[in-house]
């Protein structure tokens, strides 16, 4: 192996690692705020990528309908959990928060799609369709289980993953697609070619991380989210609604997922079930960060990307097996470091 190949592998690993880092951050965020180990994170990636590719093909994506369905289901779930009688006002209020954005996004999608809009409009529409699914999903699946153990939430999370993968197949079919790149730029740095798309990936990752850092470091709402994660009762006592925090966390997760999907859609062929594996790599990073540390997660994600890239060169057959095996010693170390103190809880 020569330096060129090594550099190429490194670059490839870094690009994937950046995506994993974004997903890992979303997982840490969701877990910290809601205790949900968010397995379906990867589905948002696939939905994002496939939605964008469908726009590229000049069609309105099925996810537009799905978003509407999620919204209606969320309202149904929300209202059915309320004991008092539900009036028309409450119904409209709920619909406004669950279904209004998906409705607008769907309408825009059906109008705009046949006009073959420029990439950036497709990207915005994709985000507008996918992001509201996050909070609605929280309302449908996780809010009613909010008092459950981490394990109950985890199993529910796996159920949601199953359902969303299935829905992905229904709406997008089994064929893989690739989206148009956001830019056709290609240039070379030394011996390796660099595409505009990879630059987008790096830029978006850095931007998203900076935005998140600012949101959590400066904005009161961001601090309220951290506070919920740190001390649920404490947050409630100052008037932060945990439900609001949950929805916000899921919205951010969906945003990050869809954004990642949009970024990788032009670089690799995406199938309805590709998201799971991509999400899992972010997941590994999040676990290495003990589902708690953002910086460790980001670094771990880059490491996972690079290890995977090297493994695919040296032992391509065993790439996945290697990545997933590497995590076990980390888990062991985390268990020993955190002690068995939480063993009595969580059940």
């Amino acid at each position: 192996m020569d330096t060129t190949i090594l550099l190429f592998l490194l670059q490839d690993g870094l690009t994937n690692g950046a995506i994993y880092a974004l997903l890992g951050l979303a997982l840490v965020l969701v877990f910290a705020v809601t205790r949900v180990i968010f397995v379906p994170q990867g589905e948002f990636v696939a939905y994002g990528a496939l939605t964008l590719a469908t726009f590229d093909a000049g069609r309105a994506p099925g996810t537009a309908w799905l978003g509407l369905a999620f919204g209606l289901a969320a309202t149904a779930s929300e209202l059915s959990s309320e004991r008092r009688r539900v009036g028309l006002r409450r119904l409209l209020q709920s619909l406004a928060s669950t279904t209004a954005v998906p409705l607008l996004a769907a309408a825009a999608a059906f109008i705009v799609a046949p006009m073959r809009p420029p990439s950036w409009i497709s990207v915005l529409l994709t985000l507008a369709i996918i992001v509201p699914m996050g909070p609605n999903l929280y309302r449908i699946a996780f809010r009613p289980l909010a008092d459950g153990s981490v394990l109950t939430l985890f199993i529910a999370s796996i159920g949601v993953h199953f359902a969303m993968t299935g829905l992905g197949l229904v709406f997008f079919g089994a064929e893989g697609v690739r989206a148009r790149p956001l830019s056709d730029l290609v240039f070379s740095v030394g011996p390796i070619p660099v595409t505009g798309q990879t630059l987008f990936v790096y830029a978006a990752t850095i931007l998203a991380m900076t935005a998140l850092a600012l949101f959590f470091g400066r904005a009161l709402l961001g601090k309220a989210l951290i506070a919920t994660a740190m001390n649920r009762l404490g947050a409630r006592l100052v008037g932060v609604r945990t439900e609001m925090s949950g929805r916000l966390a899921f919205a951010l997760a969906a945003l990050i997922g869809a954004l990642s999907g949009v970024l990788i859609a032009p670089m690799t062929t995406i199938y309805y079930d590709t998201g799971f594996l991509i999400g899992l790599k972010g997941f590994i990073a999040a676990i290495i960060g003990a589902l708690a540390s953002y910086p460790v997660t980001a670094l771990a994600a880059l490491a996972v990307g690079i290890i995977e890239s090297l493994a695919s060169f040296f032992a391509s057959n065993f790439k996945e097996a290697i990545v997933f095996t590497l995590i076990i010693p980390v888990l062991l170390w985390l268990s020993l470091a955190h002690g068995p103190a939480d063993a009595e809880e969580g059940h």
């Binding site: 180990i37 981490v150 394990l151 676990i287 076990i328 888990l331 062991l332 985390l334 063993a343 809880e345």
Partner: peptide, 8 residues
């Protein structure tokens, strides 16, 4: 320990 076990 805890949720690390199912993850493992």
């Amino acid at each position: 320990s805890g949720h690390f076990l199912p993850l493992g």
